[in-house]
Simulated assay, not measured.
Amino acid sequence: MFDHERDLASVRDATERLLTAAAKLNNDSVAEPSRLPGWTRGHVLAHIARNADALVNALEGRPMYVSGEARDAGIERDAPRPLDVQLSDVRDSAARFQQAGAAPADWSRTLELRNGVTDIASTLPFRRWAEVELHHVDLGIGYELEDLPAEFTEREITFLADRFSGHPEVPPTVITDGTRAWSTGSGATEPEVTVTGPAPELLGWLSGRRTGAELDVPGGVLPALPPL
């Protein structure tokens, strides 16, 4: 179950953490590479802002983006902006998302997202929380997977494990941090793989942000995950 009001508060807190950290950058460092291939920190900040507006579109019954090309073009257009403009855009777009989230609505309704994906409206605040937290890490400015709130890490592992559940390219897999366990992968009759490690390392592997080299796979090989 998703508590959209609680998640909206978590989004607000995560956004403030990101803005406070990013405010220590300057115009030169915003133009430097982020941890995402081919993207500067300006690209990441632009994406965070445009994602907020896209989710407002979804909440209000419009397509998230006019097209994939328009999405990419908007990020490229906004990436070179100076730091103060970037931060204002992230802050203002975040406020628009919070305002849309506070409007009376049927949170059990189904919404259309990108690429034909549909989901229940109440999941959107958590999806936004993930965008803010993980892209804060992607900025490469000292906020690491180990710094993420424990609740978020556990829930995002659950979310990603569910996303790969039934995927034909992923063998049946149990993921565990020694305390909790998640199942993912296909329902095929292949031998089950067990992947063990600290929760931040598990999240890094599932989200494509770490190689999984620090994870333990007794008697097996770490599954190769398809792109998200």
Rank of each mutant, 00 (worst) to 15 (best):
A79P: 02
A73I: 10
M64H: 03
V85N: 00
E76L: 13
R109C: 03
L59Q: 02
G68D: 12
G61T: 10
D89A: 02
G68C: 07
D78E: 03
F97D: 03
S93A: 13
L55N: 10
W107L: 09
A94S: 12
S93C: 11
D84L: 03
P82M: 09
Q98D: 15
G101L: 08
S93I: 04
D92R: 05
A73F: 11
S93G: 08
S67A: 13
L59G: 01
N57C: 06
V85E: 01
F97P: 04
S93E: 10
D84E: 12
S108T: 12
E69W: 15
A102H: 14
A70C: 11
S93M: 07
V56L: 07
D53P: 09
D89F: 01
A95I: 01
A94I: 05
A103F: 13
V85M: 01
A100L: 08
A105G: 12
A102E: 14
P63T: 09
S93T: 13
Q99D: 14
A102C: 13
D89G: 01
S88M: 09
L83N: 01
R96I: 02
A103I: 12
Y65A: 07
E60M: 09
L87I: 10
F97K: 08
R62C: 07
A95W: 01
G68S: 10
A95L: 02
R81C: 00
W107N: 05
R62L: 12
L87E: 08
G101D: 09
V56A: 08
E69I: 14
A105F: 07
Q98L: 13
P82F: 06
Q98K: 09
A100R: 08
V85T: 04
R96V: 02
L59C: 03
D78H: 00
A100T: 08
R96A: 03
D53R: 15
R81S: 00
A52G: 04
Q99R: 12
A79E: 02
N51A: 15
P80Y: 00
D72W: 08
V90C: 08
E69N: 15
W107C: 07
R62K: 13
F97H: 06
L55Q: 10
P80V: 00
E69M: 14
A95C: 01
S108E: 13
N57F: 03
